[in-house]
Each structure stands twice: as C-alpha cells, then as structure tokens.
Design a binder for these strands. Structure first.
Lengths: 201, 201
DNA sequence: GTCTATATCCAGATAGAC
DNA sequence: GTCTATCTGGATATAGAC
C-alpha cells in the first residue's frame, strides 16, 4: 500500500470512530428514533452526505454499536471468569469494576445503556434484535457459573445461581441509570453493600 | 346538567383514558420520539383527528402521563410513611408491593418506566422536564426518612439514609427493566435477598 | 363529537459536482 | 473523500364536512 493509501485508511478509520462515538452518546440520551442524523453530522463536523459514505443508514450505525457493546461486555466477563481466583474474589472484582466504570462516566456506561435501550425497545433494527436475543445472555451465564463456583467454595449464598446473576446485573443497571440521571452529585455505593446480597458473612 | 350531557362527559372521559392508557404502553416500549400518533390512533380505534380534540399534541399526552405517574408514586410513598408501623415493616411492605406490582406487569411498571425514560431523555417536553426535576425526588426523601426511623429503631444498617433510598429505588428499577426485557420467564426475586442490603440481621 | 382529506414540515437518504 | 443541493416519504397537526 502506498504512503497515501495508508494515510487515507487512517483518516477513514478515525472518521468512522468519530461517528460511532458521537452516535453512541446521542443514542443513549435520545434513543434511536430520537436521534437525528443531522445531529451526528453537526456534533462530529462531518457532513450529512459523508456519513452515508461510511454507513448505509442510521440503523446500521445503531446495529454496529450494539454489536460492539455486547462483544466488549461479554469479553470482559469471560476474561474475568478464567482468572485463577476464588469466586468471591471474582465477584468482588466484577462489582468493583462495574461500579468504578460507571462512576467515572466512561464509555462503559453508554455501552450498557444502549444495550438496555435496545433490549426494551420494539422499534430497533431486526439485526440488532437478533444480536441481543442470542448474545446478550452470555454474561448472565458466565456470572452464574462464577456464583456456582462460589457456592461450592462456600462463600456464596444458596439461591439459584442464574437468578443471582440476573439480580447482580439488574442492580448494576439500575444504579447506572440512576447515576446517569442524577449525575455528578451521585456517588455509586460501596460494593460491600451490594455484596451482602450474594455472599455469606 | 342534562341527561345527555352527563353521558357525553362519561364518553369523553373514557376516550381520554383510552388514549392515555394506550399511549403509556407505547411510550414505554418505543419512547416518545419512537411512538407515532397514528399508532395511538390505530390501537385505540380513535381517529387521528379526534385525538387532537382531546390533546393538543403528542407532547401533551406525554406530559400528562408523567404528571400522573409521579403523583401516583409519590402518593403511595407518603401513604406508606404515615402508617403506624415500624420502619422495618414499612420497608418490607414497600419492597413487597413494588416487586409484586412489577411481577404481574400492571400499569405500575409502565408508570415507573415512563418516568425513567423521561428522566434520562434529553428530548422531552420542557414541562415534563420541570415536573421530573421538582417532583421526582420526593419518593427518595420519604424513603430516606423511613430508613432514618429504622436506624433509630436499630433495624436498619448505618449507611447514609438517602443513599440507601437511592439504592433501593435503583435496584427496583433495574429489576423492573430486566423483567420487562425477559418477560414472563423471569420471576422477581424474593424480597429477603434485597432486604439483606438494608437490614441488620 | 367524530371522521376524512389535506397542508406543512422535516428527516432520511441520494445524486452529482469538486 | 467530501461537500451541497435535492428528492421523497412519512408524520404532525389542521380544516372542514357530517
């Protein structure tokens, strides 16, 4: 590849990323239907026409983000699972990571939101629906396995493991929403309070 | 008022209610921007033109619902507070009521959702924003007072009362979302698991 | 009070020049 | 690769007949 081609590729990738990052923030705040392609154009400084050079439609941007978000979260969960740690340690790490991630309003929270948004909404592209239907529960299964491990080790309470996983992610999700709404003023709770739902003392 | 007038008033009220109920369900599933006035018309069987006889705009329907929802929830919280019960009993009642309410997918859950939706969204009518900003935190204050009472009584853990209230509603909200997404298959957890975050044992 | 028909507007997507 | 100008469709809201 010539010098110029390499450079062009780089610009292309950057533009693409710019569009995705901006769209992510807008989608989480306004939803798919509530976000105008004009806004993405304005906030990125990329002309409306050019956006269609990178993505076929608004829906495609959305679907791309859903795919990325789910993949990112699942990968993190699977990474955690295979650490050589006790279940108790893994659970603490998970909660800590999630709470911290939300507290500093990183992209992590937006990734969580857009998934939640897509999961409740009826008006999202079929492809995004499909991804959610098949991939979103992976993290629940991973977490359930960790809880099972913990029950064998004696550190985790004896409720149904999958239900505990669902409870964990639901709680985190609820807190993340709260944080998003009430913003900087609100500090995520200490992980120990949440841990009392899951661990024997 | 003549006989016919009374009857007309009744029909008018019913139509109004019909529009609101239908709109509520649609808004929670699709958001404000994602819901078409045509859909409300189709699902109620009320012609599009007639809807504008009852409400000035889609936004007005939305704002009306927000007002109703917040009022309903705040009233319930204040009612609970003034019962002659121990704090522990009040907390149990609150959790039980909320979990049960969500489990049978009553309007209660939709009321919660539309508030959450409005609270995160940037694209909602100014009036709705205003209501949320001033009225939505009332339930947090009420619940915080109940937690304080419980701390005096010795039943509640010694964390910041307001933060516990926020945690309680966030958790409930997260679970309600989860329920809405995974539907009938999912049963809300037993209240005792959640109680372990708040009560001394 | 209720419907049908219509005006108006605006957003998504495309075409074509540079 | 990038922009501006434009087409097209669909949604909100209104007008006017019954």
């Amino acid at each position: 590849m010539s010098r110029n081609k390499v450079l062009n590729e780089k610009i292309k990738d950057e533009r693409r990323e710019q569009i995705l990052t901006t769209a992510l923030r807008l989608f989480t705040k306004q939803g798919l239907a509530g976000t105008r392609i004009t806004e993405i154009s304005a906030k990125t400084g990329i002309s409306q026409g050019l956006i269609y050079h990178y993505f076929r439609s608004k829906e495609e941007i959305f679907t791309t983000l859903i795919r990325e978000a789910i993949e990112k979260i699942n990968t993190a969960a699977l990474e955690l699972e295979k650490q050589p740690l006790t279940a108790k340690e893994k659970i603490q790490l998970a909660l800590d990571g999630l709470l911290k991630g939300f507290d500093k309003k990183s992209e992590t929270s937006d990734f969580y939101f857009i998934i939640t948004h897509a999961a409740i909404s009826e008006n999202i592209p079929a492809e995004a629906k499909e991804i959610i239907a098949t991939q979103n529960e992976i993290k629940y299964h991973v977490m359930a396995r960790i809880f099972s491990q913990g029950q064998k080790e004696g550190s985790v309470k004896n409720h149904n493991a999958y239900e505990m996983a669902a409870l964990l992610f639901s709680t985190i999700n609820g807190l993340a929403l709260h944080k998003a709404i009430y913003g900087k003023g609100y500090k995520m709770p200490n992980k120990n309070i949440l841990l009392s739902m899951f661990l024997n003392d």
